[in-house]
Design a protein around this nucleic acid. Structure first.
Lengths: 216, 216
DNA sequence: GTAAGCTTTTACCAAGCGGTCAATTTATCG
DNA sequence: CGATAAATTGACCGCTTGGTAAAAGCTTAC
């Protein structure tokens, strides 16, 4: 009778039915599949509804628009995505911190490639939905960690280098294995494209960054 | 009267009118803009026709389908994109070769960001149109250059490392500045996001790879 | 049970999409 | 010039798209 009122009220009062909780999760899971594989524009509500095992109007009962699904997905991913960088500890040993950051980012590329591609898609299209988040929270976090790295370099614990571009290079090299997966597989060929490629990548990247940052 | 016959005949005989030459170029230029900004699915023929300053039927007079435009664009980009890697010279000095490869790739990210994003979009979507090209010509080229790098490592000219992941890391770090441009700008902030960021990146990357690959 | 609210579906719509057709305008060349 | 081929366009088509309306089914609490 009240149609969408239930969802609207749930949103206001933060109180959700068990079904609402479950179905919204189901939808987000399905949407992650579809959005990460086809981008925002390439994804269709029919595909998502299908993947979630429900009808399109039913899907739209839980999320009012396609954009609403996408926005919530992006928000969620953005948070978990920056977790490794947040864990970056100024008090820790520089070498160990950087090494473990690389390892964690690479593990995320391996274990959450959909999340990585969702994010990559968004940035590639010019980040129309999250430009503010990039310029605000993200920039602040990076600024903070860049200062840590700069301090390490000043006190001679690692080589002098531009901390921002260091972070960029760790992001790009690790995410490459999720975002450009098809290319990586194609180039490595059937023989070397097994899951072992992540261990090889880890070994290479740790070597590169550890030697590249060693004080000289 | 003959409608599309002219184009078909031109395709067979390889003889094109001046107008055909010009207009096809105009269309590809416009399509590069649109495809790189929105991806294949996100781009519309109306947008491309608009950007090319002609009507949609007129556009379809020169290219029979949307995919035909995209295919030709991808083919063209793929060729020029691998130019720097082809120039990689087994006879050259390892350090100079790698350094100049990084520099050239970074210059391409700076000067041809649309081409980079077009390619990135295609790979992100699972490379539906070019998987064969990746597994064939691309893989062969990389295999060849990987052998060169491996030989350098064996003869002690550079540090031992996995040549494939070395190439991946150069690709990813350099293309990052084209594909993730919005993010890079957002994080660097207005003060540091000028064109100088490419020089900073070049300095950092050359340092990282040169030290990371130094024999030890 | 039953009434109230929550969930789901069938049928539908307007807009946007890639692409076609037929007719008109423009260029080319003897 | 005039004729023939090439280039261009407005009108249109069928399909897909995101989204809606309304009613039917289902849960839950009393």
């Amino acid at each position: 009778m009240l149609d969408r009122m239930a969802i609207a009220r749930a949103a206001r009062t933060q109180r959700k039915t068990r079904i609402q909780e479950e179905k919204q999760e189901l939808i987000l899971e399905a949407a992650l599949d579809v959005f990460s594989a086809s981008g925002f524009r390439g994804a269709t509500l029919d595909q998502i509804a299908d993947a979630a095992g429900m009808s399109k109007p039913n899907l739209l009962y839980y999320f009012r628009t396609k954009e609403a699904i996408h926005r919530q997905l992006i928000d969620r991913v953005l948070t978990t995505w920056l977790e490794p960088l947040r864990a970056f500890d100024a008090e820790g040993k520089p070498e160990a911190e950087i090494r473990s950051y690389i390892r964690r980012k690479l593990e995320m590329a391996r274990d959450f490639p959909r999340e990585s591609r969702l994010f990559a898609n968004e940035i590639l299209q010019g980040a129309p939905h999250i430009e503010d988040e990039l310029k605000g929270p993200l920039k602040e976090l990076v600024d903070e960690k860049a200062e840590v790295i700069r301090a390490w370099a000043r006190s001679g614990k690692i080589a002098k280098c531009d901390p921002y571009h260091l972070i960029f290079s760790i992001w790009s090299t690790t995410q490459h294995y999720a975002d450009f997966d098809v290319q990586v597989r194609a180039v490595l060929g059937q023989a070397n494209a097994g899951e072992g490629r992540f261990e090889d990548a880890a070994r290479f990247l740790e070597g590169l960054f550890m030697e590249g940052l060693r004080v000289r």
